[in-house]
């Protein structure tokens, strides 16, 4: 037997699929641009509010609606609040909402999708019925209904609790905002993850390497952790990256409509909503949050596309 054809692999270092994907990602200019913008925004969300001399709530009625200057980088709004500080805090709001909502949605979606895909049968049918049902309800409508029907009674309940107990926990109603925003958005965001994961698990479950692993006697736990998850996670990463961007846009949209994060907590959405009323006179009040929201959307979509090309090289082009 000749050994020549067996030595066909060159002597360059072995490349794992992950490292290979990383190599493709950092060669993709748009993806790198997206990644850098995402990192800058994440940095702003984490440390931004500490870096400005102004509090996002402190009003300076002597300097209302000031244009951009060295004192106020992006100017001030109708109450004299520093727009730069508010936009930074809005970035934090956007990230917190996006991360928590996506984490919740992924947890629900992956659990349900993996259960449906792995066990099949009646489980699969019931879970998928439920998924389709949730998907068929218009997103905006569901969020509006939840917020409109729950926010007032919950706030009222908090108020009575505060008056009864004087426990400071009940005074801060901002948490209701977040709770409702997180909850209602996670409720509409999980079905795509469930479908994706179910499809992945179904397709991987029937691959010969799973049968091969079973033939070796490996336990279900090993098969799941070493075979199913590493092979299923690529599309999920892409989907999560795109989902983070979508969640930010959704949060802004809801805040814009007044069913999301409420003033005075800054969110890009409610800043845009405020700015829209006076944009003829003070365009910077609309432009700054709108541009930042636009950049964030573009950043996540570039990164998502780049990840998709990097992780599923055969699917692209």
């Amino acid at each position: 037997m000749s050994s020549a054809p067996l030595l066909a692999v060159a002597d360059d270092p072995p490349v794992s699929l992950w490292r290979d994907a990383w190599g493709r990602l950092i060669r993709n200019r748009l993806a790198v641009a997206g990644l850098v913008m995402v990192l800058v925004l994440a940095f702003a969300a984490a440390f931004g509010p500490m870096l400005t001399p102004y509090d996002f709530l402190s009003q300076n009625l002597d300097a209302r609606n000031a244009g951009p200057s060295l004192v106020h980088l992006f100017g001030t709004d109708d109450l004299g609040r520093d727009v730069f500080s508010r936009v930074l805090y809005g970035t934090r709001t956007a990230f917190v909402v996006a991360i928590v909502v996506t984490a919740l949605a992924v947890t629900i979606g992956v659990t349900l999708g993996a259960t449906a895909g792995f066990f099949g049968g009646l489980f699969d049918r019931i879970i998928m019925w439920f998924t389709d049902m949730t998907m068929s309800v218009p997103n905006l409508l569901l969020v509006v209904v939840i917020n409109a029907s729950l926010k007032a009674p919950l706030s009222q309940w908090m108020e009575t609790q505060y008056l009864a107990t004087l426990n400071p926990f009940f005074r801060e109603t901002i948490w209701i905002d977040f709770l409702l925003v997180f909850g209602s958005m996670a409720l509409i965001a999980w079905p795509p993850y469930a479908r994706l994961v179910r499809a992945q698990v179904l397709s991987i479950r029937s691959r010969p390497y799973i049968t091969a692993a079973r033939a070796l006697g490996l336990t279900n736990r090993i098969i799941l952790t070493r075979y199913v998850v590493p092979n299923a996670i690529g599309p999920l990463i892409v989907s999560v990256s795109a989902g983070l961007g979508t969640a930010m846009v959704l949060e802004s949209a809801f805040s814009f409509l007044g069913v999301g994060v409420n003033p005075p907590t800054p969110s890009w959405g409610n800043m845009i909503s405020d700015g829209l009323r006076v944009w003829q006179h003070y365009p910077h009040l609309l432009a700054v949050p709108a541009i930042v929201l636009g950049l964030a959307t573009v950043a996540f979509s570039f990164l998502g596309d780049g990840l998709n090309d990097a992780l599923n090289p055969r699917g692209s082009k």
């Binding site: 699929l17 390497y209 049968t211 692993a213 033939a215 070796l216 006697g217 070493r226 590493p230």
Partner: peptide, 30 residues
């Protein structure tokens, strides 16, 4: 314990190996 004695090799060499494991890991695992 019986699976150790009774093994199988499949038709399609492109899909019988886990793409995320090195050859050494795949052979060493059992």
């Amino acid at each position: 314990p019986i699976r150790r004695d009774l093994q199988i090799v499949f038709q399609d060499p492109y899909s019988t190996l886990n793409p995320r494991m090195t050859i050494g890991e795949a052979v060493g695992e059992p």
